[in-house]
């Protein structure tokens, strides 16, 4: 009878969440009715099940019939995740822009009008952009998902023995995990784009006076491109997790490729003096935070000089951990 469960799962997992349970129950009672008629009071054999499922046909086609014809950009199986991601992206963008405005106003209240204009401009440009990119990403996944489904149909007769087992709970990816990560990446991008000049050590002398930036202002435009690229790769990775919904060896392979690419990009960006502010220690001393040749100076200078290495080590360890974790979950029986 496990084959029936697999069949029902194969049909319903392609359908919107809200209808799944009802359709599953109705299908089950249909299959039982069909079996009953076939065996006429005898015991049901596996062969009977196979024949009944053959009569019902390819679960993908049945799911397609439940969905109706495709006249949408983002299909019902992705729509729930799309709406969720869209809300989160829009809300986090709006919050980040507002926080930027508040910080700028606190730091420099005289030019509040300028900050306000920036706020309006940011809202008008960033929100539609966030909306557009999210929609674009999901439309692309939907499109390629459809093509894959069609490729598989050509020339292959569907058999009940093709039915994949229902994935174990432990292999499933909780949908909120990728969503939390996507939010985090979005916030980081916005932080880097809109408030790079405040990314550093804040100096307070009679209130706020200056920032000693971590990053090199002269090369910031190039660095920003890299940062957006790396975050974009990260978002793509999380979207893959969201679409697959469970750990499979295929997903782990994709993530491995994506992780290698992002590590290379990070290495390329961070490795070199152009990324970090070359005068960081000098500026800190000038601002009076540390005095040269003191213990404090040596500690700060040690941390500053080794930070590149440690950031890389942490990053690589994190990415490898993600892969091992995925690999373990994908192979769980």
């Amino acid at each position: 009878m496990e084959m029936i469960d697999r069949y029902i799962y194969a049909v319903t997992q392609k359908l919107p969440l809200s209808q799944r349970e009802d359709i599953a129950e109705e299908l089950r009672s249909l299959i039982e009715d069909m079996l009953e008629e076939r065996v006429q009071g005898e015991d049901v054999t596996d062969n009977d099940v196979v024949e009944v499922l053959m009569e019902l046909g390819d679960p993908r086609q049945l799911a397609q019939k439940y969905k109706g014809t495709k006249n949408y950009l983002i299909g019902p199986e992705l729509f729930d995740s799309y709406m969720l991601v869209l809300k989160i992206v829009l809300i986090s963008t709006a919050i980040a822009i507002s926080i930027t405005f508040i910080i700028k106003t606190i730091i420099n209240p005289v030019t509040i009008l300028d900050h306000f204009v920036e706020l309006i401009v940011a809202f008008v440009t960033a929100l539609p952009a966030a909306f557009g990119w999210t929609t674009f990403g999901f439309a692309i996944s939907d499109h390629f998902g459809e093509i894959n489904a069609k490729d598989l149909e050509i020339g292959t007769e569907w058999k009940p023995s093709d039915l994949a087992p229902i994935p174990d709970e432990k292999r499933q990816i909780k949908y909120y995990e990728p969503i939390v990560s996507i939010t985090f990446y979005t916030l980081l991008i916005i932080m880097f784009v809109f408030s790079n000049e405040y990314l550093g050590v804040w100096i307070f002398q009679d209130g706020f006076s200056d920032v000693v930036p971590f990053l090199n202002n002269e090369t910031y435009t190039t660095s920003l491109l890299f940062i957006i690229l790396i975050m974009g790769i990260g978002i793509t990775k999380e979207c893959l997790k969201l679409i697959y919904g469970k750990w499979t060896s295929k997903l782990v392979t994709y993530i491995a490729i994506v992780n290698v690419i992002s590590t290379i990009a990070v290495l390329f960006m961070i490795n070199g003096n152009a990324f970090w502010n070359p005068d960081f220690l000098l500026e800190l001393t000038q601002a009076g935070v540390i005095t040269e040749n003191s213990d404090g100076y040596r500690t700060v200078s040690m941390i500053w000089n080794q930070s590149t290495l440690w950031i890389l080590v942490l990053l690589v360890v994190g990415l490898i951990w993600e892969l091992i974790d995925g690999l373990i979950k994908a192979n769980k029986k």
């Binding site: 299908l27 009715d33 069909m34 008629e37 009569e55 086609q61 109706g68």
Partner: peptide
């Protein structure tokens, strides 16, 4: 499924996979 059998008896063939959706 009652509909499927009833219609079949009256000469109208419907696949369950068409009727249920």
């Amino acid at each position: 499924y009652w509909l499927v059998t009833m219609l079949e008896e009256k000469g109208i063939h419907v696949e369950p996979g068409t009727l249920y959706p």
